[in-house]
Nucleic acid binder design. Sequence first.
DNA 1: CCAGGGGTCCTTTTT
DNA 2: GGACCCCTGG
Length: 716
Amino acid sequence: MRSDQSHLRGLNPEQRQAVLHTDGPVLVLAGAGSGKTKMLVHRISHLIRSGKAEPRQILAVTFTNKAAREMRERVAAFAGDAAADVVISTFHSLGVRILREHGEALGLPRRFAIYDTRDQLGALKTAAAEVHIDDDRFDPHRVLRRISDWKTRGVTPSAARREVMAEPTRGDRSDDYAVLSADAYGKYQEVLRACGAVDFDDLLLLPVRLLEEDEEVRRAVWKRWRYVMIDEYQDTNGVQLDLARHLAGGRRNLCVVGDDDQSIYAFRGADVRNILEFERHFPGAEVIQLVQNYRSTKRILAAANAIIRGNPHRHEKTLRTDNPIGPPIDLYEHEDEVAEAETVAKEIGLRRYRHGTRWSDYAVLYRTNAQGRVLEEALREKGTPYRVVGGTGFFDRKEIADGVAYLRAVAHPDDEIAVRRIINFPTRGIGRTTVMRVAELARSRRTGFCRMLTQVGDDDVGAAQARAIAAFQALLDRARRQLRKAEEHTATHPPGSKLTPIAEWALELFRNGSGLIDAVADDEHRVHNLKDLVGAIARYERKRWADRPDAEQAYEGRPVLAPEGWEPPTLHDALARLALDQEEDDEEDDDTDAVVLMTLHSAKGLEFDEVFLVGLEEGILPHSRSIDEAPAGDPLAEERRLLYVGLTRARTRVTLSRCLTRKRGGEAVETLPSRYLDDLPDEHVNLKSADAILTPEESAELRQNFFKDMKEMLEG
DNA sequence: CCAGGGGTCCTTTTT
DNA sequence: GGACCCCTGG
């Protein structure tokens, strides 16, 4: 329970006072690598130890589950057992928590579904079909972005319509496109409600609405949390600012930490002004600046500072460090992305051997997920262990989306989007025409799509189709009955060595109930993925039981009475968790030694010994989309910040690279160097031109390395 | 009315 | 590697 206070030592007494003791609003404006999150951990443990608050009255909010997990661990290391009761949650999980307790006031079902982007797209298409939008320029993704934009600013459909009408007309068809989007927004919300579902934006928006409109909810929340902390505050959007205000309440014990130079989420509504104008939003706020960097070498900081200086409108600050100057930054120029990837793979192999480092000391960062593929290939070829963080999510895989849709169709009886997805997969004779006819019938009889399915007769659709629908309905009914049994069982029986009840039920559903596994049987990989989904449910059930206060007393095979306040695992809850936290594959987490691959966005908040930053070209960084779209403000400022974030992830060494040509749609296209390269200080940058072929000496070196690995493996 | 094949387009960043 | 569209045959 001894704490590492080194970061506090860098503070003067007032700053220390502010971080640890001050009530009222506090803004910690902290540069990269200055120990931002650590400040929050200090504050939390101090609050506990000084007795100013009970652990359960402390709330810390993060953006990602990973950040939440990390903070939980660190707080536990500082404050011991008491830390378990501190509520550390992501914004979205917090939203679920509030909605679960109070959501019924908004007409939300107790068990609401959470829609991801894919479901949102489905809902929007359903909505569009209902208002007969057949505009050929109707681009669902674009409309969805627009809708999300409104929602993150707390704009209702009717307000959106007014907003659109009030906009100066450009006189072209984009005007009616805007109106179209506003109309689609209203309908989209109706579809969500009819499905008993919320999207990610609702998870923030609806709690705020509750807090605004319901005195009782407001009081409950104020009573619940006395000290509120928010990490990465620069990434908050309009709705999150409102939420922060409500959570802080009249006490205003709100401590936020962030760095405006690391604001990289404007595309999903984040508003840097929230951190820049914190003192205006929370008058009397204490502001502390931290510019001491504990992470990187002097050279890396010099480069990072030089890059970020190019941005206007920022809290001016220059990071400094007592760390050594470090090696120069290498800049490689490659023929194409394949050569780039091969050189990265080769360099990592060599350096690891020469310096006796671990694979996990190296990270390769890129702007777009697509860049990761080539890198993976090169690393695989060399036999280098690697781990891709984020990327094409588990849930983006078709078979997983199908599996989840089955689970949801069972768990949420009104979930039209889920049902439509699986009603004819695997094919069972319910084609497009029939589905459209059912939807039409549902509308004319003013009932829901799912309810309509239980009522269609031979006159409504063909006899064969009616039979197929009845069979599908029977499938769902049977699955529901079996689920009820599984849930009863899992509620009273601690998990043993066998597969947990809900997971086992899901496997049965995939295997026999739905025929899903048969449908993908020819692809081993997909079958494996479906089993992973089952595994995720099992992990959830076990975790639920592990969280039970009397878990030790509970033993296998014997029903035990649930203690007060403990909720047994349910499919619905498992789905909510799955939607919010796409936890990585269980075993191969942090402890496996592997090179890490990820986007610059995913890298924020992390640090590595050596960082490779690839694809420093116009069109990649800055990305062409952000160059083209250039709305108000300057989107390019954000691209610059991305590079800043990338550079400041490294402790000792940064290696940059760009390609002279890059494949675009099968064609190799010439590229231009990223404009940001000009801003790097020459004296710290080493221009290299590399080829990926190993010299004989290097080959020998790597061969030896290979034998060393084998030996270690055999010994270990 | 349904299933399956083949062609075409695109692909920022994430809870 | 997808998602989507159109075409053909049953």
